Every structure is written in C-alpha cells, then in structure tokens.
Simulated scan of single mutants.
Amino acid sequence: YCSEVHIALTGHEMKDCQGPGNGNRRGQHEWVRGTVNDVLIPIDSYHLYDPFGKRIKHEQRFDYDRIPAVVELCIQAGVDLPEYPSRRRLVPIRMIGKKVIDRGGFVVEPKRSTREQTALLELDTYGLNISPDPPPMPDSELRDLAERTLEAWETVRGGTAKLMKKYSVKACGYCSEVHVGPWGHNAKLCGSFKHQWRDGKHGWQDATLDEVVPPNYVWHVRDPSGPPLSFPLKSYYGKAPAVVELCVQAGAMISDKYKPMMRLDIVIPDCEEAKLVA
C-alpha cells in the first residue's frame, strides 16, 4: 500500500503505513516480496540533445526519451551513448547571470532511436522479480559481492555529487521530478500539493544529491532471522540506506559513516524493560 521497505525475513510491526485503507488496518503494513527498484529507487529524467536549447513543452513530452537521471548527467558530462546523442560544444556559452547571451544557435536534433534493444534496457530490473531464485552462493562469495556492491554505491554517490557541482540539476519542490539541465522543462505533470493552482507546473529549484540518488532509509535489523522489530521499541532502532542495510546483512563491513545512524551503541531492551526506562 505504501513505499515502506524492510530488509529481513519478516516485516516489522511498525504501525506507520500511510497507504490507502490504513485506518482499517490500524497502520499495519502488508508485506510482499520486494524488487531491486524498491531498494534502488529509479529517478528518471528527460534526455536532451542540447540542454541549453529550447525547453520541452507539455505537448512535446512524448517526443523525448526518459532515462535514469544519473545516466543523463553522465551523458552531459561527456559519456557517449550512440542511442542517446548529445551536442558537444567547442565554444563556451556566454551568459550574464541566468540570461544566455550566445548559445551558438539552435541545431536540428537527431531523430529518436527506433531500435528495440538499447544499452539502457540492461538496467531494467523487472525481470529479476519474475525470474526464479538464483542458486545459493558460498558465504565467501556473498560477502565479496556485498563489499563490491557497497563500494559501487559509494562510488555512484560520490561521483554524482561531484558532477552536480559542475552541471546543473533541477528538482521539483513539490514532487519527485528531476530534470538535468540549466532550467526545468514545461511539462505539466506535477500532481502534488495544490497542483491545480499551478496548472500542473513544477516548482523548480536546485536539486540535492538525495533527490537524484535517493538513499531510501530503512530500519536497521541487528538479527535478520530474529523476532520482528517491535513498535513500542521504535525509539531504540536505527536506520540506514536500503543498499547499505542489504550489504551489511550479506556480510559487508559497516562503515564508520553509517554507524551513528544505525545506533549500534544503543542496547535494545525488552518491551517490559522499556517501561522502566526514565
């Protein structure tokens, strides 16, 4: 019913579901098997051949491809993908403040690729949800995979933060829409708070790293095979990004960066002992 994610053999007992019918369920979650997209939240944006060209109008929203925002950021930073061409300028753009004085003129954008197979289709993880479970891995290989996954997560986060200092990324202040470019698009797709007053237009502002690569915090489980997390002991539990929690449960070492938010120094009491805590 909601976007809550929990990494353990059984779901937690926190009564904080905000989905439809939560009143009838008294805030209880109904857990189903998650997918990779539940751990790594996909954030897509429009691919632009020329980020400093004409803005995308609402009527043109289907004329542009939607690709992961991190991929679009890398393309604008210089990565060449044949399926998604990008204009490379040899002369810098002249601007006074936010006003463009000389952008080198407008060029005709190439037609969209009609090939069914592209490199980005390999990023689609829906097939992992319907495919059979892979054979079990030895503990040593699983631990090594967790370490490499955690290292890749830190590399993506760190690299994205560096690129965002050089290339402009915009985010809507009302919804989760992200646009990679010096200014946002004009597609009227915002459906968040009081969108009728804005005619569906987004409220663009400078994006943060967490809006481009969401950490997706989940409850930290010290014993994945133990009893589920209890609602009365909610204040004693810590949290961590879903990728980090998944890798830690697979055997990866906990970085000092995440130890404070996991609250590893807190002794979790029993429910009866918690009543005696001042």
Results as ranks from 00 to 15, higher is better:
165 K>S: 11
269 P>W: 03
265 D>Q: 10
138 P>Y: 00
81 L>R: 01
8 A>Y: 04
114 T>W: 07
85 P>G: 12
122 E>W: 06
178 V>L: 10
50 D>H: 09
180 V>P: 03
196 Q>S: 14
214 P>I: 12
180 V>C: 02
39 V>F: 03
241 P>L: 04
33 R>Q: 11
152 A>H: 05
19 G>H: 13
164 M>Y: 04
15 K>N: 06
206 D>V: 09
144 D>E: 09
50 D>C: 13
21 G>F: 07
11 G>Q: 03
133 D>N: 08
251 G>W: 00
188 K>F: 09
194 K>M: 15
240 A>G: 01
27 G>K: 04
219 W>H: 08
135 P>K: 05
231 F>K: 06
272 E>P: 01
143 R>G: 00
248 V>D: 02
150 L>F: 04
131 S>C: 12
118 T>D: 02
48 L>E: 13
43 I>W: 07
70 V>W: 01
240 A>V: 02
48 L>W: 08
198 R>C: 14
29 H>F: 06
4 E>G: 12
238 G>F: 04
71 V>F: 05
39 V>A: 08
160 T>P: 05
31 W>P: 04
239 K>C: 03
191 G>L: 15
273 E>Y: 04
122 E>I: 10
126 Y>I: 10
86 S>P: 02
183 W>V: 10
243 V>N: 01
208 T>Y: 13
48 L>N: 06
92 P>V: 13
53 G>H: 11
181 G>H: 01
267 V>C: 00
82 P>L: 13
126 Y>P: 01
216 N>G: 10
262 M>E: 02
107 V>S: 10
99 K>R: 14
237 Y>M: 00
176 S>Q: 14
226 G>F: 02
61 R>F: 12
113 S>R: 06
127 G>I: 08
77 A>M: 09
277 V>M: 01
33 R>A: 06
275 K>L: 12
12 H>S: 07
15 K>M: 05
20 P>W: 11
208 T>C: 10
24 N>H: 12
127 G>R: 15
96 I>L: 15
132 P>E: 07
149 T>M: 09
154 E>L: 04
147 E>R: 11
56 I>P: 06
119 A>D: 13
232 P>Y: 08
271 C>L: 08
28 Q>A: 13
160 T>M: 11
149 T>F: 04
15 K>A: 05
36 V>M: 13
259 K>N: 00
227 P>S: 14
53 G>S: 13
219 W>C: 00
89 R>S: 12
86 S>C: 14
153 W>I: 03
74 C>A: 15
170 K>T: 07
207 A>K: 03
58 H>F: 07
190 C>L: 15
244 V>D: 05
180 V>G: 03
71 V>P: 02
182 P>T: 07
232 P>D: 00
267 V>Q: 06
126 Y>V: 13
19 G>P: 08
157 R>S: 11
92 P>W: 09
117 Q>E: 08
135 P>R: 07
84 Y>R: 05
186 N>L: 14
248 V>L: 10
42 P>W: 04
194 K>H: 14
7 I>Y: 04
40 L>F: 06
114 T>D: 15
184 G>H: 07
17 C>K: 05
28 Q>M: 10
